[in-house]
Amino acid sequence: MHLDHPVTAPQRHTYGAEPFHADGSRRALRVGLGGPVGSGKTATVAALCRALRTQLSIAVVTNDIYTREDAAFLRREAVLPPERITAVETGACPHTAIRDDISANLEAVEQLEESLPALDLILVESGGDNLTATFSRGLVDTQIFVIDVSSGDDIPRKGGPGITTADLLIVNKTDLAPYVGADLNTMATDAHKQRGDLPVVFTSLTAPDGIGQVAAWITGRLTAWQAGATS
């Protein structure tokens, strides 16, 4: 808990992940989504926005590696009004921007919070990266790692910080499993070996309510966050 007067030093604690605004209210839950290129992070973000936007006030920060394509996609798909979507440029290093030097992403998150009062949820989507990409706890409160069946069903076995430590692991594109010879049971077994009790969900975003389990997980985290129960 900080002691600064909010009028004399309003930005005093904006460099960290303080859970409260200067006025004492709880800020939006920040959820990071990371994972390899093409695993379906942007599609997951779009599906989450569609599923939750009527009940929650949501904003999105995208981290593109050399374009602003992900933000443009989300705007084009009109999953949220354009003022709720911000793109951060990462200078060829997506993991640096979410882990080692989070300052640009924090700026983006805070600007959204300032311009959109009463936000419930901010989704921070990493640029496509490798299996070691994780978000700093200074940037997000909880993180999701997205992989997909078509990149090989040995990915959960290979592990790496994203697979083993993310608060939720999504194995996406299960509808493609028969076509790429991926064994979902093996993936599930390996994932649980790597992750212990941490949750894993299998998704197919082409199915009706394919995002349902993920949306429910986020809603649960948000409820706990708003009640002050999460760390």
């Binding site: 004399t8 030093a9 930005q11 005093r12 460099y15 960290g16 300052s103 700026e107």
Partner: peptide, 20 residues
């Protein structure tokens, strides 16, 4: 961005004032 990093690493009244 530099201000954020500096206030976290070497906090001071001067930096707080400039940030304000």
């Amino acid at each position: 961005q530099m201000m954020r990093a500096a206030r976290a690493t070497w906090p001071s009244d001067g930096l707080d004032r400039l940030a304000h």
